[in-house]
Design a protein around this nucleic acid. Structure first.
Length: 527
RNA sequence: GGCGCGGUGGCCAAGUGGUAAGGCGGAGCUCUGCAAAAGCUCUAUUCGCCGGUUCGAAUCCGGCCCGUGCCUCCA
């Protein structure tokens, strides 16, 4: 079975077939840069990252674009209140967004677009919609004529009538006067004094700024072409934002404008009594990324996200994150054990390149991953083959990361039963290590040891500044001292001086170093 | 009011017609100087409730109860 994804446009799972058999073009609605990225955004962007990684694992080249909405009412008012210019304000938010993404191990996008860099194209698009009769000018403002687009409401499953009912009594009189129809939305509006403004050269709407919806339609088609494969954003964007984007773009680009619409669900914060609560600045309960990664690794966070399917809303509190991290420890321990075993091997023994090619992306039964043959060798090969099959089946079914995590648990169990803790069989251990880290990579976790898996290590964008570096440094600095202490402890144990050996272990424990005895001697890690 | 989504063991969570994955927590055991880790066994005759279709339903249909999202700020 090939990859299937749930397409919001058709409301069903469909085989994923990009326009170009080897390339997937994705546009993601990004942040409105009036405030910093928070845990809710993290869930969404981590999903896009996993989706991208899964496509890459399957052999596609992915071109992903994300935008910053750097002009809208809130940015203008926030910037005004903060006493800075709008663009300075946006600049700071963008810089912290990039940093937060790196902290979460989210791969860089091919392009990051800013609405203010595409104003000329937006003006052209507005004019084109006017020319085609889909828009009208009202007192210097350009509005989209919703009733001129017969498919309006199709994407989000609404009808004009239903919208009208929902809106009854909610539209202000002033708004009714400006608009021909209550649901008409702004394409271009005059700026107030002191607000950012662009000249259009159009007599009827000479200056002002673009509306939110036109920004995205224009940025996506300008960077990815008139038709592209995936357009996504949080479920809250479905209406009105994406509905309006379709209404704008299809008259200009044709139908269907994009192949697949995908909408990850929200993360829902739970309060002390486990009731859902809205995250908001005024309640002071917004969880920032620095706060999130302070006591949890990116791996743990991404594992937590992966356990729940992306189209289910995800409840969050620190307790739930802690419980999921507890489960992830077993996976991490297996990786650690393999790494320790292999660290002792010589370069010559480890010199087993990972190889493979994709049969053909055009055939439905492509051999994936391309490294498969390198993974299924040796003592753990059968377990690895079973695991890969389950992992792929799970992910192919509309990004079933829950099934993928279950497969990982079972695989790791088989590796323990298979004896990774005592094995000296370097080729087998290496194949298992690579198989495990390769698939953890898909979920956004685990930077592999470059010495053990150089091919994958170079693919990882995470650098030493992303949180892993600190621990690596600590380990390097402490290693020598700890090894000396453990030697002393081992001597004490041999002499049956358990009081002394336990004292050493307790001291290390107190210093944050967990010690475990194994058939191959003591092992330690920072706890 | 309109349009959706969801209710699976103490908790999290898969499963969309063939007889309940996986994880956390809990109980017992093996191994071990003791820990830790790992392994083994047990922990839902049952999937919000009531009807219906079917040889067979957590899965399909109808009704009801509860929760939740959106209805022009929102990932």
């Amino acid at each position: 079975m090939a990859l299937h994804v749930f397409n919001t446009r058709t409301k069903q799972k469909e085989p994923f077939v990009p326009a170009d058999p080897k390339v997937v073009r994705i546009y993601t609605c990004g942040l409105t840069v009036y405030s910093h990225m928070h845990i809710g955004h993290a869930r969404t962007y981590c999903f896009w990252d996993v989706f991208r990684r899964w496509l890459e694992y399957r052999g596609y080249h992915v071109i992903s674009v994300i935008n910053y909405t750097d002009i809208d009412d809130r940015i203008i008012s926030d910037a005004a209140n903060g006493g800075t210019g709008m663009l300075d304000h946006a600049e700071r938010i963008i810089a912290s967004f990039r940093q937060d993404c790196r902290a979460l191990n989210i791969k860089d996008y091919a392009t990051y677009t800013r609405a203010t860099d595409f104003v000329a194209e937006q003006i052209d698009a507005v004019q084109a919609l006017l020319d085609k009769g889909h828009a009208y000018v009202s007192d210097g403002e350009v509005l989209y004529d919703v009733r001129s687009f017969e498919r309006y409401g199709e994407l989000s499953g609404r009808t004009i009538e239903a919208l009208q009912e929902g809106a009854s009594g909610r539209t202000a009189d002033a708004e009714r006067e400006r608009k021909r129809f209550f649901a008409d939305f702004t394409l271009w509006k005059p700026s107030k004094p002191g607000e950012p403004s662009w000249e259009t050269g159009k007599p009827e709407w000479p200056s002002g700024r673009p509306g939110w919806h036109i920004e995205c339609s224009v940025m996506s088609t300008t960077t990815l072409g008139a038709h592209f494969d995936v357009h996504g954003g949080g479920i809250d964007n479905l209406f009105p934002h994406h509905e309006n984007e379709v209404a704008q773009a299809e008259p200009l680009c044709g139908h269907p404008w994009v192949g697949y619409w995908m909408h990850p669900a929200h993360l829902q914060l739970l309060d002390e009594s486990n009731d859902p609560v809205k995250m908001s600045k005024s309640l002071g309960n917004v969880i920032s990324i620095p706060e999130l990664v302070k006591n949890h690794s990116a791996d743990q966070i991404r594992w937590f996200f992966g356990v729940t399917h992306y189209r289910s809303s995800l409840a969050f509190n620190w307790q739930l994150l802690a419980e999921s991290s507890k489960g992830f420890e077993k996976i991490k321990r297996a990786v650690g054990i393999l790494e320790r075993r292999l660290e002792q091997a010589s370069d010559a023994e480890l010199n087993i390149p990972v190889q493979g090619t994709y049969a053909s992306l055009r055939s439905g039964d492509q051999a994936i991953p391309r490294e498969r043959e390198s993974f299924v060798h040796g003592a753990f090969g059968e377990a690895s083959a079973r695991f890969i099959e389950r992992f792929i089946a799970g992910m192919d079914d509309d990004m079933g990361t829950s099934k993928a995590t279950a497969a990982l648990f079972d695989y790791v169990g088989e590796l323990f039963v298979g004896g990774i803790e005592a094995s000296d069989d370097v080729p087998s251990l290496l194949a298992a290590y690579r198989c495990l880290t390769r698939h953890l990579w898909v979920l956004g976790a685990e930077l592999p040891n470059p010495r053990l898996y150089p091919e994958l290590a170079v693919e990882c964008t995470r650098s030493a500044d992303a949180g892993g570096g600190d621990e690596a440094e600590r380990v390097a600095a402490l290693g020598g001292v700890i090894d000396k202490l453990l030697e002393a402890r081992q001597d004490a144990r041999k002499a049956k001086d358990f009081a002394k050996s336990d004292l050493i272990r307790d001291l290390l424990q107190a210093a944050g170093v967990a010690v475990e005895d194994t058939p191959k001697g003591a092992r330690w890690q920072l706890g």
